[in-house]
Amino acid sequence: MAPSTQFEVSQPPTDAISSLVFSSDSSHRLLVSSWDKHVYLYSITDDQASLLNKYEHRAPVLDVCFGASNNVAFTAGMDRQVKRINLTTGDQTVLSKHSEPVRCVVYSPSHSLLISASWDNTLHVHNLSSSSDASEPLVIPLPGKPHALSSSPTKLVVAMTARLVHIYDLPVLASATTTPPSPWQTRESSLKFLTRAVACMPNDAGYATSSIEGRVAVEWFEDTPESQARKYAFKCHRQAAPEEEGGGDIVYPVNALAFHPVYGTFASGGGDGTVALWDAEAKRRMRQYQKFPEAVASLGFSGDGKYLAIGVCPGFETGMEDYDGKGRTRVFVRELGETEAKGKGPK
């Protein structure tokens, strides 16, 4: 068996994790954004993760992503700002200001686009190839509050309230100047409940979404009846409730989805504290890892697919009046075996 080891990051955030992401190259740099108002930069080596730096913000950070190089990061803040951070110097530049907290931020390296989604029901699109930082972003109004955002090489998927899903064409976004382009496709989510996460397939073929109701859907971009007939959804991240509580299932939200950059399989992380690996083509679960001590908040594969980072912290559940992730927030890194995430492909 090829080795597969798991280790824990020694200096994790002090409060809940909102997002974590690896750099897309093979430098194994890991960014973690937290509700403790910081962004953490770790460097993963063979069997340990060391904190390189942390970057303070004015307010909780809701999302983070790498920019064109592994030395640049973008953050989405509760303080309604989208910022660029120079990871070496720590310099922060405000790129965009929304009128509500910024929920997600995504950078598309192929089109040099920075896209942020805010609860003010807009997308801000920065074209970083031509314009200077000072230029105003392109503002795209959305019909609902965005909750998740993901980009493939040519598409951008925005999941909103009321099960709305808009798919934008990145080249169109890149060439748009003043008038906001209309979505390439508008869809209704295949899932009946609030969307929790979206992740695009690295091969640009489609995407997966997950909802608060323990379910994941896989869909394809191509708008032909054949492709659309291939879409499917399945239940996951559920537990049988003890009989004395009336039996049935306890259904956890699926908080995180991440596609493996090489094999195209994907991982899901749920409020039940488990991570499962799925083969989207063969429609099979390949693996389910041992339960983590808290809910899985975010997942990320490294650019070369060697590591899987898992951010865990207590999940916010219905009925909670307060929340504190202190001391219970941890980041695990799993070094995957050679073929651990490799799917068998369709039979």
């Binding site: 509700w35 049935g248 939200p253």
Partner: peptide, 29 residues
């Protein structure tokens, strides 16, 4: 049994957990 037994840990279909957390005093901006 299914109806009775299925319990969603988070069941607000309009407002995300993050939005609820954002309203807590400790995180509010």
């Amino acid at each position: 049994k299914k109806k009775k037994g299925m319990r969603m840990v988070y069941d607000d279909t309009e407002v995300s957990p993050e939005e609820k957390m954002a309203m807590l005093p400790r995180y509010r901006w």
